[in-house]
Amino acid sequence: MADAASQVLLGSGLTVLSQPLMYVKVLVQVGYEPLPPTLGRNIFGRQVYQLPGLFSYAKHIVKVDGRAGLFKGLVPRLCSSAIGTVVHGKVLQQYQEAEEAAPGASKKEPVSSLEQVLKETSREMVARSAATLITHPFHVITLRCMVQFIGRETKYSGTLSAFATIYREEGILGFFAGLIPRLLGDILSLWLCNMLAYLINTYALENGVSTMAEMKSYSQAITGFFASMLTYPFVLVSNLMAVNDCGLAGGLLPYAPTYSSWLDCWSQLRREGNMSRGNTLFFRKVPVGKRYVWEERRFR
């Protein structure tokens, strides 16, 4: 219980600290650009037109809604973080208890490193998927609370009232908008990360060297970053589907058409060259061939 409570507290703290970052990221993913491009310099010193970065965007939100405005959607996100942490831990605990209770557990033969990686990754996949499935309704509410900034709506003003609104307008399925690409992205990212780390640790790094041992400790983080970059389009599509056609300005034209499915959303983003929109919040380049429309606060 103490471990679970400490994990929930740690997760909640990180959630609060990262809330402004996620808020800006979601608005950029939707395509909302409240500030026009400015002339700046890239990393090579060349003058280019750039979109406002994280801090400029955050300052704009503070100017409109005050500092508290950076924390819209925090309550449902905290609920999601806490419940997800508990569910994830419980699932892994069930696996561990079942393994210990199995006949001959104490005489179990050692398994190969690859078998161990496959077993642990499979268990982690089930645990993460269960946590995502249970907490996705809170995730949907979080995103919609954030996107309300675009149209200055108050439709999703509270967590409980948001549950009632979604159920009344969209039914049970409304709570799981964008779930499939989110699950697929999580699963692919997990397997890519763990298998790449295994391959690097097994075949690229030699044992017995202190520097190599240190590099192995960082390989998981490096492959995790690489895997998250590759699977980012799933995150983008999931978030767009969660707010699509929900009655908010950010989920309707001119920001987003009404997608028939997440595959339709994926194909349209790919045709437009927007699969990485929102992936970075620094050194943001103006989209090639796009024109900034001030009245709509977006590019088209």
Score class of each variant (00 low, 15 high):
134 I>S: 02
34 P>T: 05
280 T>Q: 11
8 V>M: 02
7 Q>Y: 10
230 L>M: 04
76 P>S: 00
5 A>D: 00
77 R>N: 11
188 L>T: 12
191 W>K: 14
202 T>D: 10
72 K>D: 06
282 F>I: 10
57 Y>K: 08
178 G>E: 00
138 F>R: 01
294 W>Y: 11
83 I>T: 03
155 K>F: 11
184 L>Q: 14
142 T>S: 12
282 F>V: 09
68 A>R: 07
248 L>R: 04
291 R>N: 07
260 S>V: 15
225 F>H: 10
1 M>A: 07
96 Q>G: 12
117 V>P: 01
184 L>F: 15
45 G>I: 00
210 S>M: 13
277 R>N: 01
2 A>V: 14
285 K>E: 01
65 D>N: 08
157 S>I: 08
43 I>E: 13
258 T>G: 11
187 I>H: 14
132 T>S: 06
224 G>Y: 04
123 R>H: 02
168 R>C: 12
216 K>Y: 15
212 M>Q: 15
123 R>I: 03
15 T>M: 13
121 T>Y: 11
274 N>L: 11
7 Q>A: 10
153 E>G: 04
261 S>Y: 13
118 L>G: 06
60 H>F: 11
78 L>F: 03
287 P>M: 06
127 A>L: 03
194 N>S: 09
242 A>S: 02
85 T>E: 04
177 A>V: 01
168 R>I: 09
78 L>H: 01
61 I>Q: 07
20 P>I: 02
96 Q>P: 07
275 M>K: 12
208 G>L: 12
253 L>T: 14
80 S>M: 10
68 A>H: 07
34 P>C: 05
146 M>D: 12
130 A>I: 07
135 T>D: 00
279 N>W: 14
274 N>S: 11
77 R>P: 06
142 T>Y: 07
88 H>A: 09
93 Q>P: 01
158 G>Y: 03
150 I>N: 11
37 P>Y: 02
148 Q>S: 04
36 P>C: 09
266 W>A: 05
223 T>D: 05
163 F>W: 12
64 V>I: 08
142 T>D: 08
131 A>W: 07
196 L>F: 05
113 S>C: 13
259 Y>T: 12
20 P>G: 01
64 V>G: 04
49 Y>F: 14
11 G>D: 04
236 L>R: 09
206 E>M: 14
234 F>R: 04
242 A>E: 00
183 L>N: 10
98 A>F: 13
296 E>G: 03
255 Y>F: 05
238 S>K: 00
280 T>E: 09
30 V>D: 00
252 L>V: 02
249 A>V: 05
28 V>I: 14
60 H>N: 07
170 E>M: 10
119 K>A: 03
29 Q>D: 01
213 A>G: 08
163 F>A: 11
80 S>T: 06
148 Q>L: 04
